[in-house]
């Protein structure tokens, strides 16, 4: 009895979590270096991803670390551009010009939420 009951509550918990995530508010910060073409690409790419997948429930802040070098230290920035997902937890970092949309979506836990769990494996 107990064994059968347990999976059911787990599934319920997971479903609840997925539901919560689907509505979670995202806090993202993109660190770029000046107005290089790579910085520009990164900003454009991430804006598009956010508009497409997180409309209305995200805060995106773009920081130029050449202007705020102390922030680079505080946030442990090494590579540029770097995107940090501050919320929801866990904290995640993305480095690059944000051109690989698929990887970002997976990293932001957006791919799972949209796709059917049974079909994600086939992607």
């Amino acid at each position: 009895m107990k064994k059968r009951a347990a999976p059911r509550t787990d599934i319920q918990a997971m479903e609840a979590a997925v539901a919560a995530r689907a509505n979670a508010h995202y806090v993202l910060r993109l660190y770029v270096t000046g107005t290089t073409s790579r910085s520009g690409r990164a900003v454009a790419n991430i804006r598009k991803i956010c508009e497409d997948h997180l409309e209305g429930r995200y805060d995106l802040e773009v920081v130029d670390i050449t202007q705020h070098p102390t922030l680079a230290e505080g946030e442990q920035i090494i590579a540029a551009p770097t995107l940090i997902k501050k919320l929801p937890l866990p904290l995640r970092r993305f480095i690059g010009d944000m051109s690989q949309t698929e990887r970002i979506l997976i990293g932001l836990d957006l791919r799972d939420a949209e796709a059917n769990p049974s079909t994600t494996g086939k992607h």
């Binding site: 070098p69 090494i78 590579a79 770097t82 944000m98 990293g107």
Partner: peptide
């Protein structure tokens, strides 16, 4: 300089300008 491989996702072209800026600033 802290690097945690597990929390870094590489998504395209990048450089280590962040390191340069930190070093230069210091």
């Amino acid at each position: 300089v802290h690097i945690d491989r597990s929390e870094i996702e590489e998504t395209g072209d990048y450089d280590l300008e962040g390191l340069f800026i930190r070093l230069g600033h210091a």
